[in-house]
Amino acid sequence: MIDDERCEGHGRCYSIAGDLFEPDEIGNGVVRRDGTVPAGREREAELAVENCPEQAISLVED
């Protein structure tokens, strides 16, 4: 999930993992669909987390 309070629209998430995130109309990151990371995409999701300059993204286990 993305913390809207912290996201400032750097866009690293949707550049790295375009299947998991997309930009809204002002360039802030939005999680696609229901936010479940499809099997095989874990690494991309982790990279998005690790590259967000504002540390706005977190992965939630379920």
Binding site: E8, H10, L47, E50, N51, C52, P53, E54, Q55
Partner: peptide, 12 residues
């Protein structure tokens, strides 16, 4: 691969 750089600034 992991590059949380601040070239474009941080925050608002």
């Amino acid at each position: 691969e992991v590059n949380r750089h601040a070239a474009f600034g941080l925050g608002i």
